[in-house]
Amino acid sequence: MTRVLHIITGLDRGGAEQQLLLLLRHLPVTSEVAVLTGDGALSPQIEALGVPVHRIGMRGNTDLAALPALVRLIRRGRYDVVHTHLYRACVYGRLAARLAGVRHIVATEHSLGTGHIEGRATTRGVRRLYRATERLGTVTVAVSPTVAERLAAWGVPRARIVTIPNGVDAAAFAYDGEARARVRARFGLGERDFVVGTVGRLVPTKNVDVLIDAMAATAAAVLLVVGDGPAAAELRARAARSPAAPRIVFAGETGHVADALAAMDVFASASTQETFGLGVVEALAAGLPVLYAVCPALEDLPAGHAPHAERLRADAAAFGAAIQRLAMRRPERFAPPPAVEAYAAGVHAARLAALYGAAPAPLPDPAPAPAAVGSRTAGSPHERDSHAS
């Protein structure tokens, strides 16, 4: 059976990390995982699947000791494929795989936005390093046509880009009435409260501040914010200054997104920097009506695939009016729409497995990239170890 080593920057509960966990449950290959930075909340879940997790212990973006450690791991494991996820892992992982003699190197681009990649500004140096190491791989997987176009605009040859959207396990998000009651009780929410919720890493690009400000436009709803991140303190302070402060609840990070969605009556995302919009698709799988600003996963599908999702301007007035309208009619939960089936996890895993089995194209000799890896560009202070996408 094909042996695959997945290399990822961290294993906290970000979108890319959750996608890796989902893949490991469905991929018909033998998988192992190497995590560059420490450990993470998802490591025990991955190991519970019987998948070994190798901890590289990287101390910072420019910790070059990670490179020979990865090379030794790859040579010892005799993997058929190395699959990298997230910027730092792609930079180090592609180079290590080439130095170890692996001929089939796949990278998934999860988080390339407009003007940023995983929170770091896409400076000329970042783009140059990305392109230099991309050439060491076999193929780059874009999680949406939107990301594929961004990669091409960066100068990645279209022949080296394959679009394989993120996957969703719809059954995992089926509505659970007991979970709804349990989560609501935990956060002091009543049975009749109309709960607007959002899930994701609390970073500026998610525009959670728009949802907080929108609550002032309606007295008929409660906002449940699920997630954590560097913007959490600022968002909590903003909520405390709002006239709607008593109706804004911060739940923190959770490993049970399905339970959080069960507690909601509508899902809202004001983010304008999505590469896929996984949270929106998961909310649709949970049967929720959705208000969103940007979601390539829906925008890349034909019209009618998500009839209960409404696209809005990313401002408080638009979201406030829509929330008020929904609160007045209190919609029932819906059956998951065709958009959810379009992104079935099994289909996603099967396409990746086929990609692993494809004969890799001839590759050039490794470029002298170690010096670039150790540059200040690779050590951008904007990099985080986990990200929502």
Rank of each mutant, 00 (worst) to 15 (best):
E299Q: 13
A97S: 00
A159L: 12
V294G: 06
C90A: 15
A314Y: 11
A232H: 01
V35E: 08
V141S: 03
G374T: 02
A293C: 13
A367C: 08
V196D: 10
V168C: 04
L136Y: 00
R124N: 12
A185S: 15
R76C: 05
A153G: 09
H83W: 02
Y92N: 06
R238Y: 11
M328K: 14
T37D: 08
L298G: 12
D228M: 07
H387K: 01
V139W: 06
A172P: 05
V290D: 13
E274C: 10
G40I: 12
A361K: 12
G77Y: 10
L5A: 03
A372M: 13
W154G: 07
A327I: 10
I8S: 09
L73C: 07
P381H: 02
P331V: 07
Y87V: 01
A303E: 14
R120D: 04
D300G: 12
G115Y: 02
P243W: 04
V143T: 08
E234Y: 11
M1I: 11
V183N: 13
M328E: 15
I46C: 09
R3K: 15
A358S: 13
Q18F: 12
V347Y: 11
V106R: 01
T122H: 04
D365G: 12
F250P: 13
E32V: 00
G379L: 08
A285K: 02
